[in-house]
């Protein structure tokens, strides 16, 4: 196994009395794509959001256990959550560009982190757009509104926006589920590119997408991580009968 970028140990998560995650243990390898699959309500998105403390704002929620990021527990008292989310970026299901220009969308993060120098900003924006495989399509419309882009372009813009603050980990929650097959294929190619520089965790409802893009796969069921293994192992010959029943559609 590669070096671990993150390591989740004995993680429990509660929404009030409801335990949404039960003693989850999962290693997240550096520069690999880890996919999380499972039926609706199994806890995979909740789990994804524990990785950069996006659940903190949910009233009545509670976390036990450790989420180590480069060896440090992100739930420690002294962790700066804003800094944490800069290093662990997130891309959501629905593309959510700001009603601003393409340029300003990508420059937004660096700007609020205090960057003012225009030349550096431009460098970062262009680099991020290239990193998100969008630059060639938008280089002549950087000042146009981002809302005029297609859905697939908007999603790649959101990825560029996440890249602009130079994160180390990218969390993706169903990043292609609102996109057509061509745009989906572009996002999947992009994920393959991005893992050279980032560690990626992706939640997806499409098992085929998980099979195509990921190196490792975790299967969640009712808050339990039932099985975690290499993706080819999971899809060719999983160890747990529940995993097999789910991925072959014999779930029950």
């Amino acid at each position: 196994m590669n070096e671990l970028k993150m390591e989740v140990k004995n993680l429990d998560f509660y929404y009030d009395d409801f335990q949404a995650l039960k003693d989850v243990n999962i290693p997240l390898e550096s520069n690999k794509v880890t996919a999380l699959i499972g039926p609706s309500g199994c806890g995979k998105s909740t789990f994804l959001r524990t990785l950069n403390r996006m659940n903190d704002l949910i009233e009545g929620s509670r976390v036990d256990g450790n989420v180590l990021f480069d060896g440090k527990n992100i739930y420690d008292q002294d962790v700066d959550v804003v800094e944490l989310r800069k290093r662990i970026g997130m891309v959501f299901q629905q593309p959510n560009p700001f009603p601003k220009s393409v340029f300003d969308n990508v420059a937004y993060g660096p700007r609020i982190h205090g960057l003012k120098d225009n030349e550096t900003l431009e460098e970062i924006v262009i680099g991020s757009l290239k990193g998100a495989a969008l630059y060639d399509e938008v280089k002549d419309r950087l000042d146009d509104s981002a809302l005029g882009l297609s859905g697939g372009q908007q999603q790649r813009l959101c990825i560029a926006r996440a890249l602009a603050v130079k994160p180390e980990v990218l969390l993706m929650d169903e990043p292609a589920s609102a996109l057509d097959p061509v745009a989906t294929a572009k996002i999947e190619d992009l994920i393959d590119e991005l893992k050279n520089n980032y560690t990626i965790v992706i939640v997806t409802h499409s098992m085929q997408q998980a099979a195509r893009v990921s190196d490792n796969t975790g299967f969640f069921l009712m808050g339990d991580l039932v099985e975690y293994d290499r993706t080819d192992k999971i899809f060719e010959n999983p160890d747990d009968q529940r995993t097999e029943d789910y991925i072959t559609g014999r779930f029950g």
Partner: peptide, 9 residues
Amino acid sequence: QQPVAIDLR
């Protein structure tokens, strides 16, 4: 059908 696991085998 993109079969997997036991179905694929």
